[in-house]
């Protein structure tokens, strides 16, 4: 079994339901995130368009975070999930430096690394990840990539030519796909970040692990 995720960006409407569901399910502390939805605006007034991209851990088959972890706190489960053992973690932040997707953070409460686990605890009880359940437009598709009849495999089959992963050049072999993505949505260097001028906040940088 090889669990994977797919987000159809054509369906996502940026409601952030998945983000909130994840926060609640996993008790993700303030100023950190396991899953977030990033808004990027494209074009010039009046011809503008807002894009929404849910971003989470890709559960890479060749995960740099797992490789660099000195104590195997990051480890593979048999279903392909890259899981974290917070009791084992020493908080060296090697994984934070290694993950090309910025998917890991240092939890300010436990002072250990944390990230999306595809809700491994729910999956173990045959439940869907909470973000999948929360999505009102079913933009999140989760399932077994090894099974050609699973919904995620069928989605990939039927959208050939329009399935992307992030930063393919890093050789991480992500198990997280996007349909309808593009450079603007998937490449952080393809948009301008005007620090301090984002909607709703003027906090530009977060303290790592709760302290500077």
């Amino acid at each position: 079994m090889q669990l994977g995720f797919l987000v159809d960006l054509r369906l996502c409407m940026g409601c952030k339901g998945c983000e909130i569901a994840c926060k609640v399910e996993n008790e993700v502390p303030l100023s950190t995130w396991r899953l977030r939805v990033k808004y990027v605006d494209v074009g010039a007034f009046p011809e503008t368009k807002r894009t929404f991209t849910p971003l989470r851990c890709n559960h890479c088959a060749n995960a740099p975070c797992e490789r660099i972890c000195p104590v195997s706190a990051l480890h593979y489960l048999e279903n392909g999930i890259v899981n974290i053992d917070k009791e084992r973690c020493i908080g060296c932040a090697g994984c934070v430096m290694a993950c090309p997707y910025g998917a890991i953070y240092i939890d300010p409460q436990t002072q250990t690394a944390d990230k999306c686990t595809y809700c491994a605890h729910r999956v173990a009880s045959s439940m869907m990840p909470s973000c999948v359940v929360a999505c009102p437009v079913e933009a999140n598709i989760f399932g077994d990539l090894d099974d050609p009849m699973s919904s995620i495999s069928k989605y990939i089959q039927s959208h050939q030519g329009n399935v992307q992963v992030r930063k393919v050049e890093k050789g991480t072999d992500p198990h997280h796909f996007y349909v309808g993505g593009g450079n603007v949505t998937l490449n952080p260097l393809a948009s301008v970040r005007e620090e301090g001028h984002n909607l709703f906040n003027n906090i530009t940088h977060l303290p790592v692990g709760g302290h500077h």
Partner: peptide
């Protein structure tokens, strides 16, 4: 990416803050 940004005028309008220096 530089040319891409000029052409698309892509601006991040809502996102979490970036992590500080690790």
């Amino acid at each position: 990416a530089h040319e891409m940004i000029a052409a698309s005028n892509a601006i991040v309008t809502l996102d979490v803050a970036l992590p500080g220096i690790v």
